[in-house]
């Protein structure tokens, strides 16, 4: 399981810059990100190399941030690659709450981050179907 940082963002200019600067100054490397937004606010989801430290730094700067468990998997970087994996989860009745991708440096495979309701069950299904699950170590230390 990977610790993702979820950050509350108001939709106004300069918010994302500030977060990037705080993490940069704390020497925290951002590995991936995605934003879900409405007209008023957004939730910024970040994968970083030091999640606990990142949350602390953000909170010290009065930014609302929490840790969320997500799963990272590798999928073959070719047409249909993602679908193959999703079918297994669908069959097992596991709902994906959100999903986004990361760029993996030796880029044969795509790296997918996903948040599901039943995280342990999802891991089990993925393992049983030999989907490569990316360890937190690999993500953080990358």
């Amino acid at each position: 399981m990977i610790k993702q940082i979820s950050v509350f963002l108001e939709n106004k200019s300069g918010r994302l810059i500030r977060i990037a600067q705080i993490l940069g100054e704390a020497k925290i490397n951002i590995r991936g990100l995605s934003i879900a937004d409405t007209s008023d606010f957004g939730i910024l989801r970040l994968i970083v190399d030091q999640p606990e430290k990142a949350v602390k730094e953000l909170k010290d700067n009065d930014i609302m941030a929490t840790l969320t468990d997500v799963i990272a998997i590798e999928v073959p970087d070719r047409p249909g690659g993602l679908a193959e994996v999703l079918v297994y989860l669908n069959k097992a009745g596991i709902n994906i709450e959100y999903i986004y991708s990361l760029i993996d440096k030796p880029a044969q495979n795509a790296m997918i981050m996903m948040r599901v309701e039943q995280i342990d069950r999802a891991l089990e299904v993925l393992e049983n179907n030999n989907i490569p699950i990316v360890s937190s170590k690999r993500i953080y230390a990358f």
Partner: peptide
């Protein structure tokens, strides 16, 4: 937004 209120889900908020 407080710690208790904050959720990782747009829908929740």
């Amino acid at each position: 937004v407080s710690e208790q209120m904050f959720s990782d889900h747009v829908r929740g908020l």
